[in-house]
Amino acid sequence: MVELRKRLEDSRPILADGAMGTFLSQLGNDISICPENLNLSNPRALHEVAKAYHSAGAEILQTNTFGGSPIRLREYDLDSKTKEINRVAVESVRNIVGTSAYITGSIGPCGQHLLPFGDLDPESFKESCRLQMSALVEGGVDAFSIETVMDVEEAVLALQVAREAAPHVVRIVSAAFLKNPNGFFTSFGNSLRETVQRFYDEGAEVVGANCGEGMTGMIDIARELRSICTLPLIIRPNAGLPEVDNRITVWNEAPGEFAGGVKELLDVGIKIIGGCCGTTPEHIRKAKSVIDEHQH
């Protein structure tokens, strides 16, 4: 398998995996308190997820480390285990896929707000990032996936740390945009254009969107991104919006509907397509057939 940077240069799209948290939950794991703790308590669950998405055709698999920063793990008194939690997350996936798939290390928002809006100083945040990223690198990630970005400043600092600490690791950044009457914005009020520009300036190699919207909203976001940005793009929609049915949370965008949207994303020229909350290996398998058909 060629290096991920090379793979990004060729013309073929890349299929990524679907949801981690909601799929772990569907498999019967309790993720209501610190989903990352599972990496230590039950790494078999990670094997199961990796196997399911890999056999569905995903070429990129993400780690169970969304909340794996020491700042976030501290809420559960697990910050002393940052290294282990992140390293094991990568190794568990690698054990399953070997070098037949790329592994991206998930890095979600740290859960606190930077100064002056919150009380978190930028240096403490960077240190937290550094610890998580170095553990992911030790585990052997191909890329960092700085995802569900709500505050662009936080992602900018994360990109700076990534460039300094591990320049060989590919930098993928995707924000969670929500639609309001003036367009798409993050919950911190960063417009889509401003967000992409800042990511580009800070050395992001792939930019895009995940979570926030279902497929319909994501197609609009994808078109807007394509019109303003020359970098490879990533789009990972939710399977619609969550609803509760008989005490179970369900996402009503079926794999078939999801796959219909995938075709439009390919027409727009999206490089990496995967799923976020509520998507399953079945969504990814259906997306794979659409991608294969599109290539012929």
């Binding site: 707000h113 809006f117 505050d151 309001n180 009457p181 003036n182 911190f188 009020g189």
Partner: peptide
């Protein structure tokens, strides 16, 4: 939709 989380926080 004219103000966002940072404005509320400060």
């Amino acid at each position: 939709g004219q103000a966002f989380i940072p404005e509320l926080l400060v």
